Computed example of a mutant assay.
Amino acid sequence: MEPELEGRIEQARKDLAARIGVPEEKIRVIEARAVTWPDTSLGCPEPGRMYAQVLTPGYRVVLEVAGQRYAYHAGREGPPFLCPPDRAQEPAGG
């Protein structure tokens, strides 16, 4: 696994653990991969915002705690962020 992806996994696990108040060891990694997002929203567009329609490389990390899944999206730069299920889009490829 590439070091950049490993770093994104660790950042996402730390964020989720703090966010929901569980130990990191209770968080399972369901999916972690490099992807290509369809635009600069990184697969998580906010209503009312415009995004450059350009293929954007990044990462997707899906974590699970007690049967609940959490999708983290990221670009090649910057930390991953939790994307709410109602806004999450599938990557264009990867």
Results as ranks from 00 to 15, higher is better:
Y72N: 02
G7Q: 09
S41G: 00
G67K: 06
G21I: 11
Y51K: 02
V62D: 08
V65I: 13
P3T: 11
E4W: 13
P91W: 12
P84G: 12
L42K: 06
V35I: 14
T36S: 08
T36Y: 02
R8F: 12
E64A: 14
L42G: 00
I30N: 11
P85G: 02
W37N: 05
Y51M: 07
P85K: 04
K26C: 00
P23L: 03
R76H: 12
M50L: 08
P57F: 08
P38D: 01
T36M: 09
R28W: 01
I27L: 12
Y72A: 02
G67V: 03
D15A: 14
P23D: 11
Q68V: 14
Q11D: 09
C44P: 04
E64L: 13
E31S: 14
G43S: 09
E90G: 10
D15I: 10
A52V: 14
G93V: 07
Q53T: 00
V22P: 11
A74C: 11
Q53S: 07
L42H: 03
E10I: 10
H73K: 07
A18D: 12
E77C: 05
G94N: 11
Y59T: 01
Q68N: 15
G75V: 09
R76P: 10
I20L: 13
T36L: 10
I27M: 06
E31N: 14
I20P: 14
E24N: 01
P57E: 09
R19A: 05
M50I: 04
G7P: 07
E4A: 13
S41L: 00
G93F: 04
P91V: 05
